Amino acid sequence: MTSKMEKDQPGAGRLAHAPADHPAVAPARVGVVLANLGTPDDTDYWSMRRYLGEFLSDRRVVDYAAWKWQPLLQLVILSKRPFSSGKAYKSIWNTERDESPLLTITRAQTERVREQLTARHGDAVAVDFCMRYGNPSTPSVLERMREQGCERIVFFPLYPQYGSPTTATANDQAFRSLMRMKWQPAIRTVPAYFEHPAYVQALANSVRDVYAELEQPPTRLVASYHGVPERYLLEGDPYHCQCQKTTRLLRDALGFPAETVETTFQSQFGPEKWVGPPTVDRVAELARAGHKRIAVISPAFSSDCVETLEEIQQEIRDSFLAAGGEQFTYVPCLNDRDDHIEALVQVLETELAGWL
């Protein structure tokens, strides 16, 4: 069909036998959307309140009954937390671009993935990114890609380990977006890639690169993942198990003894029991046990963000040093490293099979 179009504007055309007033139709393409968690537009109170309100109202994130949770959220939490969260974001804000590091890094990842896929497939593929919370929003990006002729879309949540508060809610938002479209594109969601060899190798390479710059290597490597309530594990969410396997595969790729690599969890929120041990407590225990040099890596985060740049490098670091630790080393997220981009492209090529 598209080969018979008469071009009347860039990227779009009129069907050869269509009436003159027929809407322009873009040539058919395959879209790739990288999806990340999200970011506030600014660090001020109202920007933070808007972002936190959307995030904490997501039933995938907090699944308490709305009649119980919303009054507490709207009247108590959102009257105070925007100030503390805004302060945390301000401490790591990219002032040059006036945006959060997560937005800066996700954009860079997208540009590099686009370069790789364009080199392989030319204009047959369009690549963009969206956020589950904040901007650019999932609905706006999917609508834009549809307007660009993307009749098929590979939707890629950038979470190596599947979690219902991360992967599932990103997919939920994508499907909700389709519900509002007159012409829905076909869509594929990318599964968890926590054990993909290229991803594991990139993690191992990042550790080796950081260790190579140290005079003395750490005696412990702590793999810190974002936590979830223990109830999620008992209800069938595979996140905890996939985190444990990622740590084991990373340890094996590095050739480290089993006792030198640990799995911990951070960012506990709310009163119920969460999976553990908590990173902030465990690093203090390691210091008191005589481990003066440790390193922390965050395999669940594809991009550095407030949980890594502020929570790990400030709160968790301070906990270790206050307990007697001496050398705290943070291994950055994979971000837009060459080997990480190659891993993402390998995952995408599998999901694009049959569409290109």
Rank of each mutant, 00 (worst) to 15 (best):
Y225Q: 09
L254G: 11
E215M: 05
G227L: 00
P191I: 11
W183N: 15
D209K: 13
T264D: 08
T247D: 04
P185C: 07
V222R: 02
H196P: 01
P185E: 07
E235F: 00
Y239F: 08
T246A: 07
R188C: 04
S177E: 02
V207R: 08
P217I: 07
A253W: 10
A186S: 15
P218Q: 06
R176E: 14
L254H: 10
Y232I: 00
V207H: 11
L233A: 13
T219E: 15
R248T: 12
Y225T: 09
E230H: 03
R220Q: 14
L203P: 04
Y239P: 04
E230R: 03
R180H: 15
V190P: 01
R208L: 04
K182L: 09
T260S: 15
F194G: 03
G255E: 08
Q266E: 06
S206N: 15
V207P: 08
G236C: 06
P191D: 12
R248Y: 10
V207W: 11
E195N: 14
L254K: 09
Y232S: 02
P229Q: 03
L234G: 02
T263K: 00
R176N: 08
T247H: 00
V207M: 06
Q242R: 06
S177G: 12
A186G: 14
R188A: 08
S177Y: 00
K182G: 15
M179K: 11
C241R: 15
V200R: 01
R208A: 07
A223L: 12
L178R: 02
Q201Y: 04
C243I: 02
H196C: 04
A192V: 07
L250M: 04
Y232G: 00
L249F: 03
Q244C: 11
A258Q: 13
G227E: 03
F256D: 14
Y239A: 03
V200I: 15
S206C: 09
L234T: 13
R176P: 00
H240C: 10
E215A: 13
P191S: 15
R248W: 03
L249P: 01
L249M: 03
P229T: 02
P191W: 05
E215I: 07
Q266D: 10
Q266W: 00
V207S: 11
Q242D: 10
L250N: 01
P185I: 12
P229Y: 02
P257A: 06
L233F: 12
D237K: 01
H196N: 13
Y239D: 07
F194V: 01
P191G: 11
P229K: 00
V222G: 10
E262S: 14
L178V: 08
R176K: 12
T264W: 03
L203F: 08
Q184V: 09
F269L: 05
K182E: 14
A186Q: 15
T246C: 05
E262L: 14
T263C: 07
Q201M: 06
F256W: 13
Q216C: 10
T189G: 03
G255I: 06
Y232M: 04
R208D: 13
L214K: 13
R220V: 12
V200S: 05
E195P: 01
P197T: 12
P217K: 13
L233K: 10
R188M: 02
V228M: 00
C241F: 07
T264F: 02
A212Q: 11
V228L: 02
A253I: 09
Q266I: 01
R231S: 14
